[in-house]
Design a protein around this nucleic acid. Structure first.
Lengths: 154, 154
DNA sequence: GGGGGTTGGTTCGGGTTCGAACAACTGGGT
DNA sequence: ACCCAGTTGTTCGAACCCGAACCAACCCCC
């Protein structure tokens, strides 16, 4: 019951910094990907997940679960990617309802072309400017946070 | 030069954790505010900024600059808040073009009612589960990151 | 005072996102 | 064989957000 109704100074400023960094970084990344490769950040993420999967293929649900978007949002993005020729949809052999999204050759090519610029920006915004110790502490916090959040996300 | 085109293992996992935590936390916060107070996260942020300002008033530009939304986005949100009776728009006495957004009594009341639940959730998601040292390191990283980003945001 | 560059805020059009509802299908228990 | 709860992916309506275009007003410097 001694839970205060407001956050204390440190908590508040960390929280604000978290929101602000997220917003700014997302905006810059979005911008860079759009200018450089004509991809939105979500689309890029979808391509990355597919590229990480065996044969560059994943079920829609696995894609949505591992990613940061809802089921309907994913349907939309995959439709966009398919229209652009970067992704193909196949039926799932073991489940008639299932849909498998699969990277096309062009999808691979676009992703390979986009990755270096994206990596450079992430490095510039997110990695450089932090000392090794700072980065380590920061990463440790993120990882702990994510572990705890997985409980909530269930 | 010897800049690799991809992120190394630690960088990548930290980056993914950053994106994932941001996405999950934002979704949960959004949900909670909507259910609890009928506010979107952006709307809540606007109210908080106003409440922090002297007399609960701010110029539109200051609001947009300090916040995470574009000018047009802010116009939209303030219109919503005005429709809901939480914010009033006044003309700016020193600049005819200017518009001052100002918290109404009801705006104060709604914010006071919403704050404890929001603070509790932020505490639960963001603060608890990290040891004091972890949190300190994490906050230090965030702050350094934000400082560096301000350059880019200019 | 009276231009020219800058700023403040809104409007507009398009793209993106979400949740709820939906239909088709699955799998396990009986 | 059958039923029923749970899953899968899409569709639909609405909300949201952004950048570009825009007009009006400011500033400042000659």
């Amino acid at each position: 019951m001694d839970e205060p109704a407001w956050l204390d100074e440190h908590e508040l400023s960390a929280w604000q910094a978290f929101l602000a960094t997220g917003a700014i970084i997302n905006r810059l990344v979005e911008q860079q990907l759009k200018d450089d490769s004509g991809l939105s950040h979500s689309q890029y993420e979808v391509l990355v997940r597919l590229a990480d999967a065996p044969d560059g293929e994943l079920r829609m649900t696995e894609l949505a679960g591992a990613a940061f978007t809802s089921k309907s949002g994913l349907t939309y993005q995959v439709a966009q990617l398919e229209k652009a020729g970067l992704v193909r949809r196949r039926a799932c052999p073991t489940d008639v309802r299932g849909v498998i999204a699969s990277l096309t050759d062009e999808g691979w090519a676009v992703l390979r072309a986009a990755a270096p610029g994206h990596a450079a920006l992430v490095r510039e915004l997110f990695v450089s400017g932090l000392s090794r110790e700072e980065f380590a502490g920061f990463a440790a916090g993120l990882s702990a946070l994510l572990g705890r959040l997985s409980v909530h996300a269930g």
